[in-house]
């Protein structure tokens, strides 16, 4: 039990010792990069609706997201996305670009372990939890709506 006291003391000492970095630059970067990605999405969406007026809004959004996913995957493959991500943090994680990057990056990384058990199996090491939790949560919502 003496150890626990010591560990607690040490942990709070370390916490205090960590140099406080200014959060504002990274918050600002996340803000404007994230904002720009959303504006890009809006532009895509508007252009799609302008060129193909017969399309439903829902399909237009689907096309927009697919375009953004494509660009993020391409930038990941080219080795550029991790640099933008290191700069913008949540600015690229929170938009759908982060989802795309989280699938493409392990696919690239685990290619050497084979197509089946490397690339295909490891593709979802980060995105897996997202799809699972989203699906389960949406099913729970569905169940609730069934009875309401």
């Amino acid at each position: 039990m003496q150890d626990e006291v010591r560990n607690k003391k040490y942990n709070s000492y370390v916490e205090a010792k960590i140099a406080k970095t200014h959060a504002w630059p990274s918050l600002f970067n996340a803000f404007w990069v994230g904002g720009l990605i959303c504006v890009f999405g809006q532009v895509c969406n508007d252009l799609i609706l302008m060129w193909f007026p017969s399309i439903s809004t829902q399909s237009a959004w689907a096309y927009t997201l697919i375009i953004i996913i494509f660009i993020a995957a391409l930038l990941t493959g080219l080795g550029v996305f991790d640099k933008i991500g290191a700069f913008a943090g949540a600015g690229t994680i929170v938009p759908i670009t982060g989802f795309s990057n989280s699938i493409t990056s392990p696919a690239l990384d685990f290619k050497n372990e084979g197509i089946i058990f490397g690339m295909c199996a490891k593709m979802f090491i980060i995105a897996g939890p997202v799809i699972v939790s989203g699906t389960v949560a949406s099913m729970i919502v569905g169940i609730i709506y069934l009875f309401v």
Partner: peptide, 17 residues
């Protein structure tokens, strides 16, 4: 990095410590 942390091309920030 591959073994202990994240895929190389993942766009995440490295924690300050």
């Amino acid at each position: 990095e591959r073994q202990f942390r994240t895929p190389l091309e993942l766009g995440s920030q490295r924690p300050p410590t």
